[in-house]
Design a protein around this nucleic acid. Sequence first.
DNA 1: AATGTGGCCAACCGCATATTG
DNA 2: CCAATATGCGGTTGGCCACAT
Length: 293
Amino acid sequence: MDVNVRGCSSSSSEPQSDPEDNMDLRRGPWTVEEDLTLINYISNHGEGRWNSLARCAGLKRTGKSCRLRWLNYLRPDVRRGNITLEEQLLILELHSRWGNRWSKIAQHLPGRTDNEIKNYWRTRVQKHAKQLQCDVNSKQFKDTMRYLWMPRLVERIQAAAASSGTGSSTTDNLNNNYNNQEYTTINPVLPASRSAHINSSLITPENSSTAASSDVSDPKDYYTFQDNNNNNQNSHMNYPDFHTNQSGYFNQGSQGIEQQHEQNMWFGSEDTMENSWNVEDLWFLQQQFCNGI
DNA sequence: AATGTGGCCAACCGCATATTG
DNA sequence: CCAATATGCGGTTGGCCACAT
């Protein structure tokens, strides 16, 4: 919304310099009164033109500060609380695609802010990279996310849905998509060492090569979550970079780590990313290093 | 009980880009 | 077209809190 707030003050003669130079400006945590002032002002006049807004509302804050406070905290549709499994999965996938484009990623997580996603990434994901003593941007780490964490997340999502008995959840969409082959799935270009553990019948060189060059301009084409916590947005999900069997992203088969071990390591915890590194993670990384990937 | 440590997250900072006059 | 200003984005910081020692 484009609201003209310029007429509210003697703005034409105001100094145009950065208001942060103003010694009267407040910094630090916002008070309840400031929050209410900002909310009331925006509800009456709309958002935008933040510097003018800050002045006209009588807030001794920079426009930047007001904007940040509104977008990250006060905005009515901002979603608070833990990042869900579905959101974790989406963050991982979108980050693998776009890197640290937090605002772009946030656009695809309704109610989540770039700041929140950024914080999540730094505190949870980077922590594990640190534990592994590898760079978060390294191929090893990215592959670990892609071929271990994300499939596990899908399994956990499915397990959670199964246990809760919710029939129309994201996981049902996942299952349906996979089972019915509703969408065109594109296989990842897998590390050779890892490919052996994947049901080869689901991988073809044709679509594998397609994956690497898939021209995905808008992830909405691929992801839409049934967001149970946020207005029941109708959604589906389609992974361009994975091909799965019915139980998850790939078939671990007899060569994988035993299912029980897998469950112990991942399904016993509330937070998927909070577990310590397990044997398979280390094994996977080791294989990658050994194969020079 | 006191102190140290680490995680979390709101807020700030600096820069790049867009908009305006 | 250009300079000034506003806006948006990603990186970083600092304070609070919980937990460990």
